[in-house]
């Protein structure tokens, strides 16, 4: 007990932490979790591998004449789809944290209050990056040969990350509203399946009925896919990039304040 007393009494108060430092501390926490629960990365790796193989070899020949030609079209799209699906985990892990009571402590600390969320999103961005690299490497192995420069490929990935970071705020809202992480998973997937499939990820929308084609063409996922395809193909789809950035900003502006409101008033 004397040791305990000593440890408690002899201390200087550390300086007040800033928002960046606390957000990074939370990001560190989320990344440590990958070390303990490596299964998290299974979804990130397994999903894109499965989708790429399935679409390339089952439908590729019929859709694009040959599987190797279809790969050039598909890989940028699979990159978008994989990362977009990965954003669901932001909501799921937030919901887990809240149900376990860990967040009660965080909320009672004298820190910049959004930092647990911002930290988690920083860590998720690392996860999206891992997913992107896996998709690109898999593509290269199967025969994806981007004609653009390395810079173009990197720019494509960065654009996907920006969009994913903004999209994540929708799932933090869902994660805060619903009771269980299973429900969060279910609802989020139900939302994402139509959004990613009703896009130009897998097929050219030219053969779709007019009303659907209109919907597909204004779907931000299609715009993002077109922009990434262009960047990796060595040219710049300027209009699409601007639209993707606008969509990202709008998502952030709407859903980050809602997230913060729910987070502060959650009990």
């Amino acid at each position: 007990m004397t040791k305990m007393r000593a440890a408690l009494v002899e201390q200087e108060r550390p300086p007040c932490p800033n928002g960046i430092a606390t957000s990074l501390a939370f990001a560190w926490r989320a990344l440590l979790k990958i070390k303990y629960i490596p299964e998290q990365l299974l979804d990130v790796t397994f999903f894109p591998v499965m989708f790429t193989l399935m679409f390339t070899y089952l439908f590729g020949g019929a859709l694009a004449g040959s599987t190797s030609q279809y790969l050039q079209f598909l890989i940028p799209g699979i990159l978008v789809q994989t990362v977009v699906f990965t954003t669901v985990y932001t909501g799921v892990s937030l919901n887990d944290d809240i149900s376990k009571g860990t967040f009660d402590r965080f909320r009672s600390l004298p820190i910049w209050s959004p930092s647990p969320l911002v930290g988690a999103l920083i860590a998720d961005t690392v996860r999206y990056m891992i997913a992107s690299i896996i998709v690109i490497i898999l593509g290269l192995i199967l025969g994806f040969r981007p004609t653009g420069s390395i810079l173009g490929i990197i720019a494509g990935i960065v654009l996907v990350l920006i969009f994913a970071f903004s999209l994540s705020w929708i799932f933090t809202v869902i994660g805060l509203i619903l009771q269980t992480s299973k429900a969060v998973m279910g609802i989020s997937m139900t939302l994402l399946f139509p959004v990613t499939f009703a896009s130009n990820i897998f097929v050219d929308p030219a053969t779709m009925p007019g009303w659907l084609r209109t919907a597909v063409n204004i779907n931000p996922v299609s715009l993002l896919t077109t922009a990434v395809r262009a960047l990796m193909g060595g040219h710049t789809a300027f209009t699409e990039i601007v639209w993707v950035l606008i969509a990202s900003a709008v998502l952030m502006l709407i859903f980050s304040p809602i997230t913060m409101y729910l987070y502060r008033n959650k009990h």
Binding site: P14, P17, T22, A25, F26, L32, R105, L109, I111
Partner: peptide, 11 residues
């Protein structure tokens, strides 16, 4: 790790 996290959050 739990304690390091809290220590970092405390500044």
């Amino acid at each position: 790790e739990n304690l390091i996290l809290i220590a970092r959050l405390m500044g």
